[in-house]
Design a binder for these strands. Structure first.
Lengths: 147, 147
DNA sequence: CTTGACCTTCCCGTGATGGGAAGCCCACAT
DNA sequence: ATGTGGGCTTCCCATCACGGGAAGGTCAAG
């Protein structure tokens, strides 16, 4: 199976598969005589694992940890659970920050008549408000995957 | 007022102020004889505007639009409101995606006993699930500011 | 044998910063 | 006057997870 087919079958683009191989997230696969990468069914399963983990918002670094646990048949499920819960916590933190933004903005927009007149509480807020409640500082947690 | 003081007073780092000037988000300020940037109170107000807009998650491009409206005394408040509501919609979309991720992960983690045994439904899911419901594709909306 | 679809590597760009180096400049203390 | 320590300047590099595209080799079908 060539990289294109592996990409289609796994949902990971060929570009990404090469990138993951380059950064060491996935092992180096075999090559044909002409230099084409060749994928086995087990490689496909791993690619799907990676794809799925990315869909759940894990960073590449975290996926590396997950893959290590996956391969380790003597892993402790507690380690996996810890990673998952940390990811949930990170997601919830980002969600909370964005909800704050959305709430404030929706409130301001609600107060704006939104017609041809120039008066606008949104601009007034941006202009004067030094910072509403929280300084919207970069979240304490390390930056992690968004999409 | 030098750039360092402007940074402290506005909450925008000196690095960022230079960057914003370079990309044209903010106008080029005056310089002293020795080449130091010099900030007036009105520049400070604009920097605070930018800072506040970023705190609400607006991308630099959107902030440029907001600034243009801010400076235009004959603006229509409807234009401002549209930008704000679009931002709210973008935020809510991202929030929904992340809530999906968090929900799925929390569910999987809940089903994992999290002890020293290797069995783990989280890994089982990542391994087998081709893609739960939505393919978690990159959101239709253009990528925009997260933090 | 040609054509078109694949594959390869390599380099550049994204967005919004932070880090750091090399080199001026300024104010204040000695 | 001279040092010293901080602040300013520009410039380049790194981040993170990719996508685009160029230049060139390969493969399979017609």
């Amino acid at each position: 199976m060539n990289i294109g087919d592996a990409a289609k079958a796994s949902g990971v683009s060929a570009k990404m598969i090469r990138y993951y191989e380059e950064i060491g997230l996935i092992p180096i696969v075999g090559r044909t005589a002409s230099g084409y990468r060749f994928y086995e069914p087990k490689d496909l399963q791993m690619l799907r694992f990676v794809r799925r983990a990315r869909d759940l918002g894990f960073s590449v670094g975290r996926i590396a940890e997950l893959l290590a646990l996956w391969r380790d048949r003597s892993r402790a499920s507690g380690d996996v659970k810890r990673l998952a819960l940390a990811q949930v916590a990170g997601l919830r933190q980002k969600i909370a920050e964005m909800e704050d933004m959305a709430r404030i903005l929706a409130h301001l927009a609600h107060a704006c008549h939104g017609d041809d007149r120039p008066d606008c509480p949104i601009l007034t807020d941006l202009e004067s408000s030094p910072t509403h409640g929280t300084p919207a500082k970069k979240s304490a947690l390390p930056p992690f995957q968004i999409l």
